[in-house]
């Protein structure tokens, strides 16, 4: 399955899970900021991706869940994610692009790094692994 085919299926899942229009689901759209995803939607998206792509996605594999890096005082100082924290996030979530986030690493904004593209990146790696 090529990247365009993956994107097309991801778009269908997001349209269904988030009740958004097809044209809103662009590669750079952030799930929370642009598409209005709430916490339970992440679980819904994971379940629907598993069904659509016939794969198993471990907890915290696609989206960080539970006690994660951003709750670790080692990686967050004064409300900002430290360079070590960004490195740890990048290592844990290689499908997410933290380049822009690194310029203004407010911990509350880390959720905006989850874009449609990050899901497509994740699936591209997963399906070829």
């Amino acid at each position: 399955m090529n990247r365009d085919e993956i994107f097309s299926k991801v778009r269908d899942v997001l349209v269904e899970a988030l009740a958004v229009d097809e044209d809103e689901v662009t590669p750079t759209a952030s799930l929370v900021g642009d598409l209005g995803a709430e916490s339970i939607d992440f679980l819904d998206i994971v379940f629907q991706l598993e069904k659509t792509f016939n794969i198993k996605i471990g907890q915290g594999e696609l989206f960080p869940e539970g006690a994660n890096i951003t709750q670790d005082p080692k990686f967050v100082q004064g409300g900002l994610v430290t360079p070590d924290g960004i490195a740890a996030l990048s290592a844990r979530l290689p499908h997410v692009d933290f380049t822009n986030f690194a310029k203004d690493p407010q911990v509350g904004k880390v959720i905006n790094t989850f874009t449609v593209d990050s899901i497509v990146n994740f699936l591209e790696r997963k399906l070829t692994a």
Partner: peptide, 17 residues
């Protein structure tokens, strides 16, 4: 419908603690 296990999402083991 989707159901959430409250403690594991919103509770101390979850995101918002």
């Amino acid at each position: 419908m989707m159901f959430s296990h409250l403690d594991n999402n919103m509770g101390q083991a979850g995101k918002s603690g």
